[in-house]
Amino acid sequence: MRTRNLELTVGAFILAGLLALAVLAVKISGLSPSSAGATYSVHAYFDNVAGLTPKAKVTMSGVTIGQVTAIEFDKTRYSARVDMDINRKINTLPADSTASILTAGLLGEKYLGISVGGDDEVLADGSEIYDTQSALVLEELIGRFLLNTVSKEE
């Protein structure tokens, strides 16, 4: 009987440890085996993607609908190509929707926000989002602001 209790508690301990690993994998690092396959891929070109990273979320009205899979420099177009996977359930996005790079909070991380267009055609696997808005670069912003003040004073 004593050995049985021992076996039970040790078994529960090991189970708790493995359960913790599962929680770390699924709940905390967002690893989900079913994420592949249930998505379709679209891409967009940006002049500047500063701060956006792969695995950044793609949102619409603040709800996450997909994630960025790859970012690379396209040397023929001299701009950055961003590939993203979008949940297959969201299959009615108009083809002229806008993708913009946004920031969560002042120092938060960058993510992609999609705002709806008015086209009848919808985005399908492999299509491109033409209307894009690049990342806000703080230095450029400040530069422009300074230039404005200088020209006003003149």
Partner: peptide, 21 residues
């Protein structure tokens, strides 16, 4: 929602969880 989803976006299973282990 943002507590957990922010976490899920930035925590990499291999780089963070497995390296910690």
């Amino acid at each position: 929602g943002s507590y957990w989803s922010n976490m899920q976006n930035s925590v990499e299973f291999v780089d963070d969880v497995l390296n910690g282990m």
